[in-house]
Design a protein around this nucleic acid. Structure first.
Lengths: 212, 212
DNA sequence: CACTACTTACCGATCGTTCAGTAAAACTAT
DNA sequence: ATAGTTTTACTGAACGATCGGTAAGTAGTG
């Protein structure tokens, strides 16, 4: 029989602990390691043995904290999606002119993307092989759709250009923003706030000089 | 329960072929099937058995035409990289003002991307697990670097805005263009030429109305 | 006959996962 | 305080499945 009782989130003991009896790591710790590894090698190419190795323990020890490989994926995707979906519930995304709300959501997306970089990276690289992945892709599409509606409203207000298809604009916009996970390295000269400013600026005003 | 295999494949030899003894497919045919499958499931998650199934034959039969799984990857990446690198050798990429050359290269990139969609898609999703992948990533970085230099020159000419870091601009630009492989479906209402126009237009002029 | 294009059968390696056993910490009763 | 019990966190070995790849044999063709 399998214990469905998930062990309480016990903080890993800070000091040196004995060989056994007390946790050297917990589920969140495993998750952090797993997400990084999934991004490094891809989900399928990452073995549970590698995760155990990176945690400095055995494969079966990992299974004491985690119910399986897919469960790690599910938890990671939940965190990424929760962060993104949370943006749309904030006042800045609900009140005010459509263009302002669009700017707010895009800025928020960049923020979440940077804050939970490895988690969102994992989400953006899904292929939809399993039911879990397809479910996450569905939620991601729903988020994209909400932003697409903001684009439509801003266009209807006359804030945005109408000579390019609305769907194309939205997809290119997301392509630009989502690509951040492929190259942004936190801790560098480019701060998250500055990055968000740059993204908004380039997206709305383009590459040309501001005063053409 | 698996996905439907495509039983009938085009015979490369013009002569009539029997049930056996004559070629039912050749290396390019296997490559086409393989690249699509690699994109569907990811390279690691795609088994040689699945490729055989989609070709309507056995695993060993595939190995008669192909030296191995990695070889398929290598050939596919060669095609994608060759197409992209070819753009930079054309006159439009060498002669004229920097901004015009940048526009030419970006338009060409969109064209190659659409023409060899599955091949470029595969390239853009690499993780660098093996030596072959790392080699391809290196060549892709070299291409990106050449385009980045065009951006720098256009900035120096005063054609492009200088208030956003040059590297950031280049990466966001590629993010936008490369994202096309994730959503563009050939044969739809949006033609490759129109797509290229839209990309160039959005990239240079932004989301705002042309006459702000 | 030789050659091409396969076939069936199989190999060793690796995968995710499970299981029985165990040492130490935590809890309980005395 | 101490003995006994339970719980926690693990170890090491093994499981069945699947992987990429191979060996050997063979039907059809020139």
């Amino acid at each position: 029989m399998k214990h469905e009782a998930t062990p309480e989130t016990q903080a890993p003991t800070g000091g040196g602990n004995g060989r056994s009896g007390r946790a050297a790591y917990d589920l969140p710790a495993v998750l952090d390691i797993a997400v990084v590894a999934f991004n490094d090698y891809g989900y399928d190419a990452t073995s549970m043995g590698l995760l155990a190795e990176r945690l400095g323990t055995s494969k079966s020890a990992v299974y004491y904290h985690v119910s399986g490989k897919e469960d790690l994926l599910r938890l990671a995707l939940e965190r990424a999606l929760g962060g993104l979906e949370g943006i749309l519930t904030l006042p800045g995304a609900i009140e005010g002119p459509a263009e302002d709300r669009l700017r707010f959501v895009l800025r928020g997306a960049v923020q979440v993307l940077v804050d939970d970089l490895p988690y969102v990276t994992l989400l953006l690289r899904l292929r939809g092989n399993t039911e879990i992945e397809r479910n996450a892709l569905e939620r991601r599409r729903a988020f994209d759709h909400q932003v697409a509606q903001l684009v439509d409203q801003a266009r209807a207000d006359g804030s945005l250009r109408a000579d390019v298809d609305s769907r194309t604009i939205t997809l290119l916009l997301f392509g630009m923003i989502n690509s951040i996970v492929e190259w942004y390295k936190p801790g560098g000269a480019l701060t998250p706030a500055q990055l968000a400013d740059d993204v908004i600026s380039v997206a709305f005003d383009g590459l040309h000089r501001p005063t053409a």
